[in-house]
Design a protein around this nucleic acid. Structure first.
Lengths: 342, 342
DNA sequence: TATATTTGTGCACACGTGTGCATCAGACAG
DNA sequence: CTGTCTGATGCACACGTGTGCACAAATATA
């Protein structure tokens, strides 16, 4: 049985009302009285009950975060960004994973709702439509990160993949490459399209041919998909001098294939990845890639959400959509070099 | 304003008491009435308020998890293990990071206490003594994972590092190695001692000399510490045929040094790591290591905590300490091979 | 039919905190 | 001395849910 304001009130010889006011800094209570009450509260080790307070105030100082898997380092960084951003405002965060399963996702959102979280952040997950509507129905402010579903959400943060792809391809072009392949991942529908589009845009901007034999789409973004895709590219065309991979894992797979076949990187073929996962710096050779600012994305989503929560008290119909695109930066390492083929 | 049991009661023409009982499956309410009430609850999209319920029942179905950093993949896997283990029991989890800072740690634990979490799991953090006592004072069941502080905690889960080190060293010995070095990390005090102890035990068990020039302790467990340590070992002794590294990152650093110096792995020197981080399988050559079952450790900690919570209702003085050691397994890859020096 | 038992339901209070309104003592002006 | 105002404090209710006890209605028993 923990200490309550009534215990403090008894010891101080006042009513619980006065204690409540004193601890909340209500100016009606003179400083002298407040000081006494604060002292007693300290001695007793009093900690207010968030449940009781939330019941009255209608806000819990808790945010919910849903990701597909917590053990995915990509989400780990995002979550860290979120936590650091909301910590000072006194929020705690619930974290749950959906495992890409609409059923689990629903259970998670229900749990969040029952706990009356003040807001929710949805991490890169193709969130189920009816689950999203559940949040709308309960009027819980929601921010979506890297929206993967077909519909657009009202409040969203996303990484500017098109821009990133352009930077990578421009880097390769500046190194003198002309025949640049794209090793894609069709499973990541929306993201893959953006990166592919950026690739095409930049090629076109330099009057370079886009040829379909330079691209391949694998049904996944793992190392083995990179292996399969690179092998395929090598059989399809013999004159490519650079490969832009959908992500770093696939690039690692590509490096393996090239190494096995005795093709030197970057002398014979340059390889670039995307995302900058922690080990991209330690591959052989270290991988040129585009750093997605995961931490900042998390922090930005948190900032947007807190702003929404702040506003939700207002009356005005300020409910126009807000969308923010975040940009990362190119990281040039040793896996890309000057084109030595022509 | 969300739907409450009173809204349901009004619509069903009963009292809120009956609704509460019906939804909680109280046998006093006939099935016919319950069915009607459940239907209305469904139509209205009713979700019980965890705050109000918790106020009465004294338990919140929430657990708190503290780690040093959420973006550390090691903790990511542990947290995933925890979440999967408690999900079915209907628990939600708070996650917070301490950044190894006692002040932040205290803030986190206070927040957990205010939310009246049913239990807390402390991840590999050298938890501050007074913060731990705060939890004891509030009678919150607590399980500590891989305890790093000097005192022993009552309920703890840890990885059996000594056993793991023995397995690795035995593997090397079975490959014919006799002069085996240990590349340690003195920053991880308790863990380093266990691994070093396992190494010594196994050497002794095979009547092999332990010579101090075979070991070195670096003040960190990063790649650069591996680089420094390996360089040092090479100057100290010229006849080692195998190196057992404190962890995989240091092993990666060791591989870099050996590669630069033209020393072949495993033909000239075998290298083994520890932990099995995700990229250990993709180094060049792929790294032999010991897999620490992070996911299972998280799951075991969760199971222990739930058991403690269940018991905390009992009267009996069943408060004897519980400690559990988890064991992983050796993963033999290409960085270790038969000793070809003698 | 009268009484005992079972079954179904509601009243009223509790959990811990916040808050509108009333109250009371003291200060001050007339 | 009376009346008004100000400052400090408490009463009582609210938030949403759970539960002991009482009570009425239905059923079983004598």
């Amino acid at each position: 049985m923990s200490v309550t304001i009534k215990d403090i009130a008894r010891k101080a010889g006042v009513s619980h009302t006065t204690v409540s006011r004193a601890l909340n800094g209500n100016p009606a209570i003179p400083e002298k009285t407040s000081a006494i009450i604060r002292t007693i509260a300290g001695e007793l080790g009093y900690l207010p009950s968030a449940a009781a307070r939330g019941l009255k105030t209608r806000h819990t100082q808790v945010l919910g975060v849903v990701v597909s898997r917590i053990d995915n380092p990509y989400f780990g960084e995002i979550i860290q960004g979120i936590e650091d951003a909301v910590k000072d405002a006194g929020y705690s965060i619930f974290i749950a994973s959906s495992n890409m399963d609409p059923g689990q996702e629903k259970a998670v959102i229900q749990a969040f709702s029952e706990h009356r979280v003040d807001g929710v952040i949805i991490g890169s997950v193709p969130i189920n439509r009816s689950n999203y509507e559940l949040l709308e129905k309960h009027a819980i402010p929601t921010v979506v990160i890297n929206n993967q579903s077909s519909r657009n959400h009202k409040y969203a943060i996303s990484h500017d993949d098109e821009y990133g792809a352009q930077q990578v391809v421009r880097h390769l072009i500046e190194l003198g490459h002309k025949r640049i392949a794209y090793l894609g991942n069709t499973q990541a529908n929306r993201i893959n399209k953006s990166r592919l589009h950026g690739y095409k845009l930049e090629m076109a901007a330099h009057n370079l041919e886009f040829e379909s034999e330079y691209t391949t789409g694998q049904s996944g973004g793992e190392i083995e998909n990179g292996v399969a895709g690179m092998s395929l590219l090598l059989t399809k065309s013999h004159d490519i001098s650079a490969v832009f991979c959908f992500n770093d894992l696939m690039a690692i797979g590509a490096l393996q294939v090239l190494s096995e076949q005795g093709i030197r990187v970057p002398e014979d073929i340059s390889v670039a990845g995307f995302d900058d996962i922690p080990y991209a710096a330690y591959t052989n050779p270290p991988l040129t890639t585009f750093e997605q600012p995961k931490y900042s994305i998390g922090a930005a989503a948190a900032a947007m959400l807190m702003e929404l929560i702040r506003r939700s008290g207002d009356d005005g119909p300020n409910d126009h959509p807000i969308t923010k695109k975040m940009r990362g930066q190119l990281l040039v390492r040793a896996s890309t070099g000057r084109n030595q083929k022509e």
